[in-house]
Design a binder for these strands. Structure first.
Lengths: 189, 189
DNA sequence: TCCATGGTAGAACGATCGTTCTCCTCGATC
DNA sequence: GATCGAGGAGAACGATCGTTCTACCATGGA
């Protein structure tokens, strides 16, 4: 059975995603990617023009996959309030999962200095999507300024992720959750 | 007048600090450092065993300098409450300052995958110092659990910095400040 | 049967990396 | 005045980077 053309591309993306998430873009050499994925150099360059092009594709896929996963997990909560608080429980589970290395997009922003770099745009867009999702939730609350609340909640989410990554303090998810609880109480008055 | 031996070392550190902060450790080549600083390769390697060794020194100096600056700026507030809220005003000023590129230590955590790497330890310690400072402030409040409050405030600080860096949203400092205000109101009851 | 296609293996290119080296200059100290 | 150490300019080393190339293999449709 001949492999479908898309299979090779996906194997490249899946392997590169793991390598980039674990070690970063710079530390992921094409040589390492070839050896780890079992895909030849020629095939890699058939599907991607350059390494940067491939890194972009990897991050775009991760953006979609992560957002879908996060949304699905959080939406298991019943009320909008539950879903909002659920975000921080989901984060805690993520922190404690094997191979957790923080947010790939925050890491990318740390790696790539130029704010106009394509991968930085992807990172920016990713956080924008996250803000949009939180805004969807706060809109369902009977609060006066749901967008301001969404931004405040995003600060909590980003803070927890950053503390987990830099300090290794996974309890930051709990701290953020406590604050979120207070915010919700305040918003419902 | 012959230059004091320490002058060359400090020139290396000052130049490397700027380059690393702007572009990251990987993107800062020794070649670029030589050209930018005007210090010869030989002199650099006289004061630092390796590039990694130099990067460590750079981050250690920045840790001390940033903490001193942040502390001094925040302490201009009068009451402990003022100082705590002042943190976010100071952050906003930092975000809007020329050449702002986020927190060098969060960036380092994004660049260096290995959590046991020496530079990652420096980053971790830096955030620990920041937590200690915030704890000093919350201890002066008549609240029951000053350490928990300090951790919550640190989540807000890290969240604001991360949003400023990744999204370019400097208003995150204001969002974090609003939440901090609510936390203080809650703590003083 | 032939041939286009997608794949692997691996050599090879030029560029750049961190690091070391040689050769030269200058200024302070004995 | 001789000596020594700090520093500068730049060549050079081996390693590794991203990228391209050649050679060969396997498959499926005309």
């Amino acid at each position: 059975m001949k492999k479908a053309p898309a299979d090779t591309r996906e194997k490249i993306l899946a392997t590169a995603d793991q390598l980039i998430y674990q070690n970063g873009i710079y530390a992921t050499s094409m040589d390492l990617l070839v050896k780890t994925s079992g895909v030849s150099r020629k095939s890699i360059y058939r599907y991607f023009i350059t390494k940067d092009d491939m890194a972009e594709a990897v991050l775009k896929v991760r953006d979609i996959r992560w957002m879908y996963w996060f949304r699905t997990e959080c939406d298991k909560g019943g009320t909008p309030q539950d879903r909002i608080l659920n975000m921080f429980t989901v984060l805690k589970g993520w922190f404690e999962s094997e191979g957790f290395r923080g947010c790939a997009f925050i890491n990318t922003a740390g790696e790539v200095g130029d704010p106009d770099d394509p991968v930085r745009q992807i990172a920016k867009l990713h956080k924008k999507k996250l803000l949009d999702y939180i805004f969807e939730l706060t809109e369902q609350l009977s609060t006066e300024q749901p967008f301001l609340l969404a931004k405040q909640l995003l600060v909590l989410v980003e803070g927890a992720i950053t503390m987990a990554r830099v300090m290794g303090d996974y309890s930051a998810a709990g701290s953020a959750r406590e604050v979120a609880q207070l915010l919700l109480k305040q918003a419902s008055r």
